[in-house]
Every structure is written in C-alpha cells, then in structure tokens.
Design a protein around this nucleic acid. Structure first.
Lengths: 215, 215, 215, 215
DNA sequence: AATGAATGAGGGTTCATTCAT
DNA sequence: TATGAATGAACCCTCATTCAT
C-alpha cells in the first residue's frame, strides 16, 4: 500500500516532505469538495494513513487550511516576474503563464476558494494580506503597462480581477493527461489576458496553439 | 420583523414568490460558505422563518441546491443573445455583458461552485446537462466568430473556458453599492473577453470606463 | 420509559423544570465520576433522552458544569442562617446542619470537586467568587463567635476549612435509604463541627443520636 | 533539564526510586485534575520523560492509579499510632496529626478522590479493602475511647467519617510555603477532630496556634 | 402553514496504547 | 532504556431531518 504518496526520503527531511505531501493532498480535496465538504478522513485516506495521524502534522483542520493557503500564496508569489528590463505587459504575460502552470502542475497547492466562515479572523487576515502581495504585484505591472501606453487606461484593479478570473478558473476545468499540455494552457491564458488588456496598436501577443494569435 | 424578505403577494403566486426568495437566499448562502458550509438554519434565518418551515418548500437540502442550480442555469440561458443578424463576436459580447449583469444584480440565483460530492449523480447529470446548453451556445458563437474571421483560430472550448473564468469570478470580488455600477462591470468584462479573443485587425471593441478601449 | 425523571409539568414551566432535572442528574454524575469521567451520554441516559437533546438546554459540557456549580452555590447560600438574635456559634451550627441536609437531600445540585482544568478561567472565577460568598459568611460567624468568647481564638479561615471538610465529605459516604436519616446526619455533623470549634466552658452542643453530646 | 525529578541513584534502587517519583507525580496530577482529566502526557512531562517511557514502569494507566492508591493507603496505614499505653482519644489524635502531615508533606502519594469508573472491580475491591484497614483502625480507636468514657457515645463509623472529612479536605486547600506549617496544620486538625468527638469533661485537647485550645 | 423538540448520522479531536527503531 | 510515529476507541458537538402540536 502506497503511503504518504511515496514522498518519503531520508531522515531529517522526512517530516518536511510529509507535510508537503499532506498540503498537496489537502489542497486537492479542498479544491474538489470545499473546506466543509472535505472530511479529514478523505485526506488521510488519500495519503494512506489514518485520521488521527494527521494530528502529528497539523494542529487541527482549520490550521491545515491555513497552511495550505499560505503554501499556495507562497507558490503564487514565486511566479512573479521581476525582470525589470521588460515592459509591464510582458512581465504580466510571463507571470500569468508561469502562475497558471504552477497551479495545474504536479506540485500544486492552489486553493482558489475561500469559504467565508472557514478561517478565524486572524488567520484570514494573514492569508488576505499575503494574497494582496501577489495581487499588488499584478496591479503594479498593469500600472507600468498603462504608463508605457501598452495597456488600456482604466481601473488597474479591475484589469487584475479580470485576469485572475481567467487564471484561477483553470483549476475548475483543466484535466491533466488530456490533449492540452500545461505549457499550452499557461501560454494560452496569458495571451488571452494580455490581449484583453492591451492598448490598440500593440503588436501581436504570444499565445499558444489553443488560441492562435497569428492565424 | 421582515419575513420572506417581503416577497409576499396574493394567493396563488404566493408559493412561487416564496420559492424564488428562498432560492435567492440559498444561492447567496451557498456562494458565501459553500454547500457544506451552509446550515439550513442560516438560510431560514435570512428569511426570518424557522428551519422546519423550509421543508414545506423543498424536499431536502440537496434538492434545494439542485433547484438553485437549475434556476441559475435558466437565468444564464435567458441571457443568450439570439439576434442572428449579428456576428459571433458581438453576440458573445452582448451575452457576456448581460450574463454578468444578471449574476451581480439583485435577483441573482448564481452559484458558481459545484462541490463534487454535493449532488447525487442523477441530479448532477441534469445540472451539467443544462449548463452545457449555455456553454454550447457560447461555443457556437465562438465558432461563428472564427468562421467570420473575427475571432482567433484555436480551440473554441478553450476560448469559452477563458471567458467563463473572467465572468464567473465576478461573484468573488464584486461588492454592490461600490463605485462600479453593474452595467459598467458587465460591459467592462465583456469588452475584456472579446478583445482577448478577437482576431488582429478587428476594430475597437466596446468596453466601459473601467477599461477604456479608446483611450 | 421514564423521561426527564418525570419532572414534566405544565407548559411554561416545562423548560425550567427540565433544566433543573438536568442539573441534578449532571451533578450526580459529576459527583460520581468527576467531570472528565462523565460522558454526556451518561447524563442523557439517566434522563431517558438522547445525547444531542441535551444541547437544547445547555451550550456545551463546560457550560453544563458551570450551571451546576452555580446552582450548587446558590443552594449553599440559601442555607445561611441570618438570625441576628443568635450568637455566632449557634448560627454556624444551624447553617451547617441546614447545608448538609440540602446536600444529601433529594433536590441536591452539590458538586464538591472542582477539577482544575474543567472550567475556563472566566467561569472559574465566577464560581470561586460565589463560593467565597458562602465561605465568607461562615468566616463571619466564626469571627462573631470568637468575639463572643464562644469559639476558640485562632485563624477563622482555618476553622472554616475544617468545618467544610467534615461537611463536604458527606457526599462521599452518605447513602440515602440507610439507617441514618438526613436530619440526623445534618445535626450530627453540625454538632461535631461546633464542638471542635467551641471554647472551653461552653455548655453542651446539640448533636444527634449518631454522636450523642449528653451521654 | 531535570529528569525523574532527580530521584536517580545507584543501580539496583534505581527502578524503585523512579517508580516512587512516578507515583508521586501521578498522585499530584490525579489530585489536581482527577483520573480522567489527567493525560499520561501530563505526568510524563512532569517527570521530564516521554509518554511511551512510562510503559516501562507501569502496565497501563489504570494500573498506575491502582499503584498510587496502594502507595497512598500504605502511607496512611504507616501513620497509625500503635502505642497501647495511650488511651483511644490520644491515639486518634496522634494518628490524625501524623496522617495529615504525611498527606501534605513532600513525599505524599495521597489521592483522596476515587472516581467510580476509574478502576476495574477487582482492583477497586483491593483498594477499598486496604482503605478499610486504615478506617477500621480509626474505628477501633473510637470504640476504645468510648469504652474509656473519653469519646461521646454514638456510631463509631459516623465519628470516623467526620474525622476523615476534616482530614482529607486538607489536600483541597493547603498550599505549601504559606504561613501555616505542615506541623501546625496537622496538630490543628487533630485537635479540632478530637474536641469534636470528646466527651464532656475531658480536659483541654492539644491543638496548634491555628486554633488555640488554651486561649 | 409553522415550529419547538428530538435524534441518527457524521465529523473533528483527544488519548491510551503499541511498535519499530 | 527511550521515543517518534501511528492508530482504535471514545467523546463532544453539529446538523439535516422528522414529528407532534
């Protein structure tokens, strides 16, 4: 019987690896059934362990959600493109492509949903605060792009909301192992978003075979 | 004390009106806390009635979710633009704008999330089947737009997924009573989506002040 | 099957009566097995109802303990002898006799034990505060008795501790329906305590057949 | 870090000393939180060892309680005054003083409470049987005192119950390191009890400054 | 139609106990 | 001897659902 999804290695790293496997399994379950719809038993079963064993790694269910959220945000933040030699639109495009790929890739922690009553205020605040860091980075790229005349004028936050919608939705429909590769999807969505925001006259924006910009 | 959100009228329509109020209240709760995170008590409280009274109007909680889903899909389908004199891109734009406005308007039934274990297979199949009608209509518009050379070639379903992401996400961030009107948001998202899909050379696409296409 | 120990009467008082029956049953269980050793199921079973039904009457187990404690202290306070025409020693005697009889009588709520971790600090403070009212009344009687030369000089609190020991211990050994009546026990303990505290030369103190002062 | 409360000595006695330290620590915990309210982890922590290590010294939690009870009773029995040259009242007084001092002294094993469901019948019987030895000794002293005309006539068992109440209660209120010494408390309680039982005309009975018989 | 009362089912959490190391 | 890891059993508590009124 496969335990811990075989994420078991040498002594010291063991616990860390197990935690990661736990977070990923939990993220998957939360994504599928929501926080309240997920029983700890489901997660334990997915890992081939018993329910009480989970309590060696997390304090309680809420804390597990919190940890998963934090891991997800950290993953999101790690996809931000910091290459200052690029214009805002291109930085946005690369970030989105990279972010999407991390979301649907193997090691994804991403949870999109945040049921309102699922976290106590303090932890909720922290999650929102971290999430804001990621969103602010996107807003900043949009503002740069607008200043450069590459992105349509208007509310930068509105632009980011649109972008995040197209992006986050991917977890709802993407099925790994299908005809569309992770990379194609990431590049495709990034292209879609950037075309949606680009000012008129900006040249063709890179996409993927799923939505061909140079037909 | 306001009961049934004052949706009470003359004899025969009474039940229908109450059902509608119930579905809207349920939709709001499900949207906020998910299916499993919503207690029937929450819904009853929101309507100013008691928990057992709900059972005069719905068979059980699952059935309530089913009814809300069906109402939501019907609402979505009702926003489809059937004007065959228009090209695919414009029909898509009008449909999206209209759909978004219905989602964030007062009488919204929309639930975006479908927790996988929340409906029994038979009802799930029906909901998915109805939802497919709406999505197929969108796919058909994209195909028409591609045939007309107005929409980029590629996977029409991929295009629709992107569109739906930007669209459905609106329930996560829109706050009624803020600076952005329902109409501005609807037109803005529709413009964003259509620019994201439009083939090069297609003229400026209508948006709103939130993202100005003709800056 | 006997439900609610037949403590069921007319409409409005119903809930109050049920609460009382619940508190008495809970007190009995806590006395026997301690707080942590008592399962809510035990209490429910003793009342002929099911476990979740308890939650119509108390918020949770801790709150139940708190309510029982408060009822017990109120009962204790109600036995205090306020007859100011009496000397301190006699007031003490009457109070103790009355208190003991209330503890082992039918409607007793008394819990003697307070496991330290069983109540959250706020509720613990309140219980202790109320209990102090009762103990202070006893201390005051002792001080009066000492001033009157009827009680030995020394630490009044020490005297009260001794008295309370003899008194509270009664719940550990008294078996209703045995050879010793409630009244005999109450008077007997009261006499024992008062003789233990009385100054030399104080005349014979009333007791009971269980320990005859006038042999 | 202090382990085993430094009760560690040479090879052979090691196990015995550790067991004693364990019993005392367990007694303390049981006294504070009751049997069911005490987690083995609490005891282990108090000894600076880990939970499974306890199982090298006791078979299981119930057995630990049993051992502690037996140690406590043995301690109680060891305080019995066997000096046959003394009258019953004085023997009782010395025994009680000595017993109280052993209860609140450093090496105390005393558990006063016996939650009914905490021991299986066989072990319970043995504990009760041992306890009876101690109580019988007290009863015998009372009978002797009554025969000698020094103790009030009446039920000897009732007299002993009163005595044990005042005595056992001491664990509930005594705080080491306070203003009252162990000896003062022991002598004070013994005096209180014996005055409570003494026949009229018996001369002054020794106490302590806490309750002065010769004021 | 409406609801207070009741409960079976289910989920989160703790903990005594075992085992491999 | 000592312990981190694991788990079955038991308990508190919630909630959808039913029923009598």
């Amino acid at each position: 019987m496969a335990r811990w999804n075989n994420a078991v290695a040498s002594a010291a790293e063991l616990k860390k690896l197990r935690e990661d496997a736990l977070y990923r399994e939990a993220a998957k379950a939360f994504r599928k059934n929501g926080y309240h719809g997920t029983a700890l038993e489901d997660i334990a079963e997915g890992l081939g362990i018993s329910k009480p064993t989970l309590y060696h790694y997390v304090k309680n269910k809420r804390d597990l959600l919190y940890q998963v959220h934090m891991a997800a945000v950290a993953q999101a933040i790690s996809t931000i493109c910091h290459d200052t030699s690029l214009n805002g639109l291109e930085r946005l495009r690369r970030t989105i492509s990279s972010y999407v790929q991390s979301m649907i890739g193997d090691g994804s922690y991403s949870i999109v949903i945040l049921e309102e009553k699922s976290l106590p205020p303090i932890q909720l605040t922290r999650v929102v605060h971290e999430r804001d860091k990621f969103e602010s980075a996107l807003v900043e790229m949009v503002l740069q792009g607008q200043a450069e005349g590459l992105i349509l004028p208007g509310e930068a936050r509105f632009a980011v909301f649109n972008a995040l919608g197209a992006v986050n939705w991917v977890t709802k429909w993407y099925r790994p192992g299908g005809q569309w590769t992770v990379e194609e999807v990431g590049e495709g969505i990034a292209g879609f978003v950037c075309r949606g925001l680009a000012a008129p006259g900006v040249g063709p924006i890179q996409g993927s075979r799923l939505l061909t910009p140079t037909a």
